[in-house]
Amino acid sequence: MNMVTSITTDWEDRGAINRVGLWLFILSDSFLFIAIIFTRFYLQGVQRPSELNQLLGFVISVVLLLSSLFAYRGETAAAYGDIRRFRYNILATIGLGSLFLVGVGVEWAEGFRFFPPSTGFGTVFFTLTGFHAFHVFTGILGLLLILLPGQKKRLGEGSYWGVEAMVKYWHFVDVAWVFIFPTLYLVS
């Protein structure tokens, strides 16, 4: 029996195949967030405790947007084979992503005091930010992986699928936050 470990289809472009798979995964994952956002409105309507720090929410939103910009620059640089610029930009993305997580941590500390997880708003707040923070965390891990030396060789050969995949995932996490921020912090 002749096992095929990786299919090399001579009549199809491997990158395009991977891309379709990634987009499908993102589509599926977005329904996770849709389900939790639905939960927020179903349980709490548009209620929001006055102790919620809207300004901090705004600041970390901008931080995440900025990280997305650097991720975009990193991918574009990788596409043009500019490895130095790629590395700086991805490092900046990782730094800003970590800063975002710190911001969420501050929010959580405040949340535990004013709307703990055993209350109505606390339940949806901690669930929604928790699932999102988990995505940010995995995104950071993924970005660290593409900085490993193993990928450098591939970039030199002009194939940057790993970078593209992780950066797309990162942008997706940002898109999710674009909806989560008004859902939690702004509607009333």
């Binding site: 209350t119 109505g120 606390g122």
Partner: peptide
């Protein structure tokens, strides 16, 4: 967390 318990919202 309390998704389904009315006492927890």
């Amino acid at each position: 967390l309390g998704f389904f318990d009315p006492n927890k919202g």
